[in-house]
Amino acid sequence: MPPASRPARRFRAADTRLIAGVDEAGRGPLAGPVAVAAVILDRTRRIRGLDDSKKLTALQREALYEKIVERALCWHVEFVEVEEIDRLNIFRATMAGMRRALCALSPCAELAIVDGNHLPPELPCAAEALVGGDASEPAIMAASILAKVARDRLMCRLHERWPQYGFDEHKGYSTPRHLAALAEHGPCPVHRRSFAPVYAAQVQQLALALEDGV
């Protein structure tokens, strides 16, 4: 059985290794990068309130983000840009981002626990995949919060540049408003053209341009 499919064991507080939690945010949206975070928590500086980022409010995530960056032993957020997503596909690009996030940690992790059921190739340390890890392992919870908050902040900045799409509201996900804006304006540079709705909108805009040119 391949290592990525083995049930991961529960990591105990008594484990003396440097354990990094790894998680991502933004695999599903039609626009913007994927954010991948890797975090090694400091066992001497407890952070109360950690949870799966999806179960927290935006205000709770923001407050926990500040505590994590202050108290973690080390952390890194890696943005996987749209060009890499379109070139590799979303799965392979996310795996590459996880590897880079782990490689950027200092001190280096001795073990990585990755949320999900797949492990990136060529990791710099031993690793285990853990389905539902963002709801059970504090280091993964911390990573999920860092990734989510970092990406949401970035999407709000992208909204300032392309306000017609409403990135500040839906963060690039395929909401009715976003799909309507895509149909009206076509994709912008931060849309993922390898995703079917974006590709369809691009084809539609090209067809309209050709009609106008006739």
Rank of each mutant, 00 (worst) to 15 (best):
L146C: 06
T57Q: 11
E160L: 15
P3F: 10
A183M: 02
I40N: 07
E81A: 13
V214Y: 07
A127K: 00
L206Q: 15
V114W: 00
L182Q: 04
G132V: 02
N89I: 09
A58E: 08
E62A: 10
H76S: 02
V22N: 00
P187E: 07
T57K: 08
H185S: 01
F11Y: 14
K54S: 03
A101F: 02
A180E: 13
L18H: 06
R9T: 15
C125R: 03
A200G: 04
Q202V: 03
P107M: 09
P121C: 08
V69A: 01
P187I: 07
D115M: 05
R46F: 07
I40Y: 07
L111Y: 12
R151F: 02
K54V: 03
D15W: 10
E110G: 07
L119S: 03
A93N: 04
R161D: 10
C103L: 13
E110R: 03
H170N: 09
L123S: 09
V203E: 14
Q60L: 02
E128F: 10
V82H: 06
L59Q: 12
I40L: 08
M155H: 02
L182T: 07
P33L: 03
S174T: 10
A142Y: 05
H118E: 13
A201N: 04
A63D: 11
Y165I: 03
R43I: 04
K55P: 03
M95W: 10
C103E: 15
S53K: 03
G116V: 01
L210D: 04
A196T: 05
R157L: 12
Q60Y: 02
S53N: 01
T16K: 13
K148P: 01
L206F: 10
L182D: 04
P124S: 11
V198N: 06
V77A: 08
A13V: 10
A201I: 04
R92M: 12
D15N: 10
D42L: 00
A104C: 06
V198W: 03
